[in-house]
């Protein structure tokens, strides 16, 4: 089990000792219990406190969601602030903005859409759509020459 590849392989194909992708029939057979903390069990005290917020009655507490929401708001303010000083970022501006957007995206999907607390299958379904979309459209933009030198000069 120590080898992560072997673990991923077992998780995918030999789940619960049955052959291949047996999807569990009951909640108790799920690999991740519904109230597992989003940050794992270890971590500094702040994370432990956040973990406890997600252990409210049977769903995370309103306080937890409010913290996440305010965090997202702050990130948006930071984005706009970065935008105002975009000249000092130079070529890194686009990268930084995309990473910030991706981070916000993941946070909303993981916590607001509670995929982190939900069945893994739902994450798989959504990720397959999202990843295929990103992959094919990035390839399309490359093939269309969006990243070729003459385009960048024109911009």
């Amino acid at each position: 089990m120590a080898n992560p590849i072997a673990r991923a392989w077992r998780k995918l194909f030999y789940h619960e000792g049955d052959r291949y992708f047996l999807l569990p029939r009951t909640d108790s057979a799920l690999p991740n219990p519904p109230n597992e903390g989003p940050f794992g069990d270890a971590g500094p005290p702040v994370l432990a406190w956040l973990n406890r917020l997600t252990y409210g009655d049977r769903v995370p507490t309103p306080l937890f969601y409010t913290i996440i929401g305010i965090g997202l708001g702050v990130l948006t303010v930071i984005e706009v602030w970065f935008f105002t000083m975009r000249d000092s970022f130079g070529a890194f501006f686009v990268t930084v903005m995309l990473l910030l957007a991706l981070f916000k995206f993941v946070v909303v999907v993981a916590f607001f859409m509670h995929l982190r607390f939900d069945k893994n299958l739902l994450s798989l379904v959504f990720a397959s759509g999202f990843i295929i979309a990103i992959a094919i459209f990035v390839i399309m933009l490359v093939v269309q020459g969006q990243f070729s030198p003459d385009k960048l000069v024109a911009a």
Binding site: D18, R19, F21, L23
Partner: peptide, 12 residues
């Protein structure tokens, strides 16, 4: 297909 299989019919 994912949700309505008879008991015991795993995906494989």
């Amino acid at each position: 297909i994912l949700n309505m299989r008879a008991p015991g019919m795993s995906l494989m």
